[in-house]
Design a protein around this nucleic acid. Sequence first.
DNA 1: CTTATCCTGGATAAGAAATATCCACAATTA
DNA 2: TAATTGTGGATATTTCTTATCCAGGATAAG
Lengths: 168, 168
Amino acid sequence: MKLSDGVEAAIHCATMLAALKDDAVLPTTALAEFYGVSASYLAKHLSALVRCDILISVNGPAGGFRLQRPADKITLLDVVLAIEGDAPAFRCAEIRRNGPGAPDASAYIKPCGIKSAMLAAERAWRGELAKTSIADLVQSFRAEADPRSLARNRAFVADTARVQPRTD
Amino acid sequence: MKLSDGVEAAIHCATMLAALKDDAVLPTTALAEFYGVSASYLAKHLSALVRCDILISVNGPAGGFRLQRPADKITLLDVVLAIEGDAPAFRCAEIRRNGPGAPDASAYIKPCGIKSAMLAAERAWRGELAKTSIADLVQSFRAEADPRSLARNRAFVADTARVQPRTD
DNA sequence: CTTATCCTGGATAAGAAATATCCACAATTA
DNA sequence: TAATTGTGGATATTTCTTATCCAGGATAAG
């Protein structure tokens, strides 16, 4: 069992975007370079976040991504499900119905106890992920991170953020 | 994110073995046929359970597997970790240290908040799995399963179980 | 209106991991 | 000695992940 590498990148990008003001955005290439990951692959993940209404994308020059809503309304679970999909990790193949002499489907209306227990554990996992918001991560980063790391992130946002042109 | 198919088979086999008496055992081929799964592949998973001290294997004719300890001392977590390995699902690649201008390792002594949150969720998952024992599963199966399914399992054990020869 | 930038989605391929099979070998029983 | 069964290694096969590339559309600036 392994989570996609994209999860780590997606969460980092979301926390970075949470530092933007107003309608500013950050482009894929800048984020990919900052985190040292593949730009074309990161683009796939960011698109997934857009499809799940976690990010908003802006096309054209000075385009990029920003959060779709306040960072305290976006949970780790939202991001993980956007990248991984919402299928449960335990896929019951119903092997209890296999083999010779197995009764027909009417004998298996009640869910398998194994499946129930495995899915209960996943609910606990998801529940825990839902407790942490992107805002929580930003806050703990600001409170605990090394000053050098903090400064680097701030400089990146300051240098790279782009503001949407005003339609005055 | 997906759990190995072997997890389902391993748990089913463990619950079946919990119905054995004394030193009786069940061979791989019988279990594989009963659940309609690949015998040679199931053998791999059963070996993993032996390596993790969940099952005991008996060689030779009339050989097979049985539980290493009482079913209430074996949890779902034990079985899942035996099949999946105990590496966490979230593998932090520390991309926060990547990219140009990143400070050296001394700036990243404190663990990343993202990693901490992801691992906390996994602890919740594992904690939930640890709450359910093989004995719990057997009990709920006996209480809730369809009589036809129950009878089939009982007949299988009665027909297939083998007892170790006595060293009188 | 043209150019440059950037996101989008599909096609595609390389790589890793899960799934599955086979076989030689050791252990054990009859 | 012959038959049965688990063990571990080697090896395919399939599936999923990771990664790249490109054509297309949207948009801003000149």
